[in-house]
Amino acid sequence: MAAIPSQARSKTLRACLLCSVIQAPIDFKKNGCPNCEEVLQMKNSPDRIASCTTTQFDGVIAVVDPDNSWVARWQRTAKYVRGMYAVRVTGRIPEEVEDELTSRGIKYRPRDQNDQD
């Protein structure tokens, strides 16, 4: 379960560049990203948070039931925790993270919706 930001309008809300989960910066700092902490390791690391999350996102999804939700599946967040997700996130994860993913054989899909297949 991701932390649900208390302030919906807050300009400071950040979306994870990898999984698009939206949290308040403080939550990223405390707990990291609920889905990709293993890769991004943002916990207690403001620098990582700054480089791996962004305030540049558009559209907010409340994923209540990820397993059954088509929206979550479409957004490729069906396997992630429940929480708030962004529809579109501008930006890419840092290159070393991308490399890491590649080395694991995971294809990185930017969440900016610029290329879709």
Binding site: L18, V39, R76, K79, I106, K107, Y108
Partner: peptide, 11 residues
């Protein structure tokens, strides 16, 4: 930390 697996990325 849950290992990141890039779920469903291949579809």
């Amino acid at each position: 930390a849950v290992p990141y697996t890039g779920d469903m990325n291949e579809i």
